[in-house]
């Protein structure tokens, strides 16, 4: 039986892992290569790196980091943040990434999804969607934001999810902006709505605070994988501890 994946997320800025709340207030959380290796040994199922600075010089730093990580970590690596072109994607894949994640670039240029999928295969193309609840919408609606959560687009998140899958996305990384970094639980309604609407796997992101949150989003939210940062980086919970808890709850998990 296919197991549910637990994915630590490493936001990288100037070669260091950082974590903030609702995309701001960044705190230092360590060296990316050391952390990646640590999570690998701890039993993470996959790793996601988001380059949150993404100027050209820093992009080289990121390529270098990915190369070093892929030499010692033998599990799937997804890299995102600031990727704008097929060439950007290729560089990361050649450096050792298995998947690339695009967000703003996908909204600005939908062809990039299709081209990337044609060139590297759908399984390489993760579309990251940052979604924010539309105030007082009933039934609930979510709006897509770009540029690290700074720019509202007016695009409905559910419609966008279906669209990107049609264009060739092989996986969705869905972040609830309302919950991100606050450790108050995932936005179950958002995750479930999207997961039920698309044929590809959905990674739930934003809001993990306690192990119960991961259980809820996997069961009620129908997520295929969960992404979390804060609860792992600061040692609040270990991956092995969370996995043990989820197994006790009857969730299929790799040990």
């Amino acid at each position: 039986m296919l197991t549910k994946r637990i994915i630590p997320c490493l936001d990288v800025k100037d070669g260091r892992v950082v974590k903030g709340k609702s995309f701001v207030e960044l705190r230092d959380a360590g060296d990316p290569v050391e952390l990646a290796s640590f999570y690998y040994k701890e039993g993470a199922d996959e790793l996601v790196f988001l380059d949150i600075t993404a100027t050209p010089e820093e992009r080289n730093t990121m390529v270098d980091i990915v190369e070093r990580i892929s030499e010692e970590v033998f599990m799937p690596l997804t890299v995102g943040g600031g990727l704008r072109s097929i060439d950007d994607m290729r560089r990361m894949l050649l450096a050792g990434a298995d998947k690339v994640s695009i967000n703003t670039a996908a909204v600005l240029d939908q062809c990039l999804i299709r081209e990337g999928a044609n060139k590297f295969g759908s399984q390489c193309i993760v579309v990251a969607i940052d979604a924010k609840r539309v105030a007082e919408s009933r039934p609930p609606k979510w709006e897509v934001y770009t540029h690290s959560g700074q720019e509202p687009t007016g695009i409905d998140a559910l419609e966008w999810a279906k669209k990107v899958v049609e264009l060739g996305a092989g996986e969705l990384l869905l972040t609830s902006m309302d919950a991100d970094g606050h450790q108050v639980g995932y936005d179950i309604e958002l995750i479930r709505a999207v997961s039920e609407a698309v044929s590809v796997p959905v990674i739930a992101s934003g809001g993990a605070g306690i192990p119960e949150d991961l259980y809820q989003v996997l069961v009620l939210g129908k997520a295929d994988a969960v992404l979390a940062a804060s609860i792992f980086h600061y040692g609040t919970y270990t991956i092995s501890g969370i996995k043990k808890y989820l197994i006790e709850q009857g969730i299929p998990i790799r040990v």
Binding site: L2, R5, V200, P201, D224
Partner: peptide, 13 residues
């Protein structure tokens, strides 16, 4: 078959 998510992605026995 389209019964489950495609791609089959993740760890399996």
């Amino acid at each position: 078959p389209p019964k489950l998510k495609i791609p089959h992605m993740g760890w399996n026995q």
